[in-house]
Amino acid sequence: MAAPDPPAELRITDPRALRALAHPARQRVLTELFSGEVLTATEAARLCGLTPSAMSYHLRALEKWGIVERDESADGRERPWRATADSIAITPEAHRGAGLERSRVSIHTWFADLEGDLDRMTRAVADGGNHGMTSRGRLWLTDDEERELRASLHELMRTHRGRTSRDHPEGARSWNVYAMILPADDTPAPPTT
């Protein structure tokens, strides 16, 4: 029996859950699990350079917050783990309750791979290789329009999810995808005339 389709988005609202996310090994395994991979603790440990028992500890900590779960569809001695959703959203409530420093650590840990990915893109550009895409711009959006844009991006990414290192089209390669919609500054929008 196959596992049910996960919900599109897991919303983290409890500031204590940020602590569960703020660990490099957990971030590494979450990248894989939230990309559709289903991994045993041993496989996840290999990816992170940890022992299987250490990785089991990390996976159970993530399970406590509903971020990962055991995959019931697997047979065998060691049941694998899977993500409980397609993506994670950390809500403003979680950040407000966590305080500035814990939020800063959480966000910087969450995007720790970004610098390495930018370095790889720079090398690919210099070598004339396929480097993906970068885009930067500014949009003036109402709060409702921002939520609509975010939902559209999630839906577009969802159409390509489910492909794993074991099950993808021939010739496919892995790409790290970062989607950020960030306020341009801290000031409220000027009144329209």
Rank of each mutant, 00 (worst) to 15 (best):
M1K: 07
M1N: 12
A2D: 14
P6F: 02
A8D: 15
L10W: 00
R16L: 14
R16I: 11
A17N: 05
L18Q: 01
R19I: 11
A20V: 08
A20G: 08
R26K: 10
Q27T: 07
F34D: 00
S35K: 02
A41Y: 00
T42F: 01
E43S: 06
E43M: 07
E43D: 12
A44Q: 01
A45C: 08
L47M: 10
C48W: 03
L50K: 08
M55P: 01
M55L: 07
S56W: 01
S56A: 15
S56F: 03
Y57S: 11
L59K: 01
A61T: 09
E63S: 11
E63H: 10
G66V: 05
E69K: 07
R70S: 10
R70I: 13
R70T: 07
D71T: 03
S73M: 07
A74L: 03
G76D: 04
I88E: 00
I90N: 01
I90Q: 01
T91N: 04
P92D: 05
E93V: 05
A94F: 00
A94P: 00
R96S: 06
R96Q: 10
G99Y: 02
E101S: 13
R102C: 11
V105C: 04
H108T: 15
W110R: 07
D113Y: 02
D117H: 07
L118N: 03
R120Q: 07
M121A: 14
R123H: 09
V125P: 00
V125C: 09
A126Y: 03
H131W: 09
G132Y: 02
R138L: 15
W140F: 13
L141H: 08
L141N: 10
T142I: 14
D143V: 14
D143S: 14
D144P: 07
R147C: 06
L149N: 04
A151G: 12
S152I: 14
L153S: 09
L153N: 06
E155M: 09
E155Y: 04
M157G: 06
T159F: 08
T159I: 11
H160P: 03
G162M: 05
R166Y: 08
H168F: 05
H168K: 12
R173K: 10
W175V: 13
Y178H: 14
L182Y: 05
P183W: 04
A184T: 11
D186E: 12
D186V: 06
T187M: 14
T187N: 13
P188T: 09
P188C: 06
P188W: 04
P188A: 11
A189C: 13
A189H: 14
P190R: 15
